Amino acid sequence: MSTRRDFLQIAGLSTLALSLPLADTLAASVFSKEDKVLRVAIMGLGSYGTRVAEAMKESKRAKLVGVISGTPSKVETWRQKYGIPDKNCYNYENFDQIKENPDIDAVYVITPNSLHKPYGIRVAKAGKHVICEKPMALNAAEGREMIAACKAAGVHLLVGYRMHFEAKTLEVVRMQRAGEFGKTLFFQGLSGFIIGDPTQWRLNRELAGGGAMMDIGIYSINGSRYMLGEEPIWVTAQEVKTDPVKFKEGVDETITFQMGFPSGAVASCLSTYALNNLDKFYLDGTKGFAEMQPSTGYGPIQARTNNGPIEREHITHQTVQMDEMAAIILDGKKPVIPVDGEEGLKDLVIVDAIYEAVKTGKKVMIG
Rank of each mutant, 00 (worst) to 15 (best):
S2M: 11
S2W: 10
I10W: 14
A17R: 12
S19L: 11
D24E: 07
K33R: 15
E34S: 15
R39I: 10
V40M: 09
L45Y: 05
G46C: 08
V52S: 13
A55P: 03
E58L: 14
R61T: 09
S69D: 15
S69V: 12
K74E: 12
E76C: 03
W78N: 01
W78L: 02
R79M: 11
Y82G: 04
K87S: 14
K87T: 13
C89M: 12
Y92T: 13
I98G: 03
K99A: 15
A106P: 02
I110C: 15
K125L: 10
A126Q: 11
C132V: 14
C132T: 13
E133A: 13
P135F: 04
P135C: 03
N139K: 07
C150A: 09
C150N: 05
K151F: 08
A152T: 13
A152V: 12
V155F: 12
L158S: 10
V159H: 05
G160I: 09
G160Q: 09
H164Y: 11
E166K: 13
E166G: 11
M175C: 10
R177N: 14
R177F: 09
G182E: 06
F186A: 07
F186G: 00
F187Q: 02
G189Q: 08
G189L: 09
G192F: 06
I194K: 14
D197L: 12
Q200N: 14
W201P: 00
R202T: 11
N204T: 06
L207N: 01
G209S: 00
G211A: 02
I216G: 02
I216D: 02
N222R: 14
Y226L: 11
L228F: 03
P232V: 05
V235S: 03
T236A: 12
T236K: 15
E239G: 00
E239P: 00
P244G: 10
F247N: 04
D252M: 03
T256R: 04
F257R: 03
V266Y: 03
A267P: 04
A267R: 05
S268K: 10
D284L: 12
T286Q: 07
T286M: 08
K287A: 12
F289R: 09
A290S: 11
Q293M: 15
G297H: 12
Y298P: 07
G299K: 07
G299T: 09
R304K: 15
T305Y: 02
G308I: 04
P309K: 04
I310E: 09
I315H: 05
I315A: 01
T316A: 10
Q321V: 00
L330K: 06
K333V: 01
P335C: 00
V339F: 03
L348G: 02
V349L: 08
I354K: 01
A357W: 10
A357L: 10
K359W: 07
G361R: 12
I366F: 12
